[in-house]
């Protein structure tokens, strides 16, 4: 969804976000920066509760996010078909998470396709990340 009119400042921020989110090469970021970028791109506030629901509920296919990441993403998960260990998803429990925008975009693309059958919207990504950031030790 694109607003019809934008101030120059908003346009500048939007360009920065596009660069951050569309980078193919690794671009270092913090989880909070990425959340801000997704929220900007979505144009609406992020809702952690909606992110939690998206994470836990199957979306009409075999898997939910929790199938591989575990019911509580504060702990390590296990790939649902290969059994490969997967490090905790919540950034407070795994410092590597959400620090490389290209990697984040790659996994959102693949995993949303697997779970929902389409790519996630910026709003869904913002919801999800905002919920993950509420999980602290």
């Amino acid at each position: 969804m694109k607003p019809q009119h934008r101030s120059r400042r908003t346009r500048g921020a939007a360009v920065a976000i596009t660069i951050l989110l569309n980078a193919v090469e690794a671009v270092a970021a913090t989880p909070t920066e990425l959340l801000a970028a997704y929220r900007q791109a979505a144009g609406v506030a992020a809702v952690p509760a909606r992110g939690q629901q998206l994470f836990a509920t199957p979306q009409g296919r075999d898997w939910s996010c929790a199938s591989c990441h575990g019911a509580l993403p504060t702990q390590a998960g296990k790939h649902a078909s290969t059994g490969r260990p997967i490090g905790a998803l919540a950034p407070a429990f795994n410092a590597e998470r959400f620090t490389d925008s290209a990697k984040v975009e790659k996994w959102f693309r693949r995993n949303c396709n697997d779970v929902i059958g389409r790519e996630c919207t910026a709003a869904e990504k913002a919801d999800l990340l905002s919920w993950l950031l509420t999980l602290t030790p």
Binding site: V24, S81, A102, K106, R109, R110, N111, N113, D114
Partner: peptide, 9 residues
């Protein structure tokens, strides 16, 4: 094998 494992070019 049932999952999206797509990569960048």
């Amino acid at each position: 094998f049932g999952t999206d494992a797509s990569l960048d070019a």
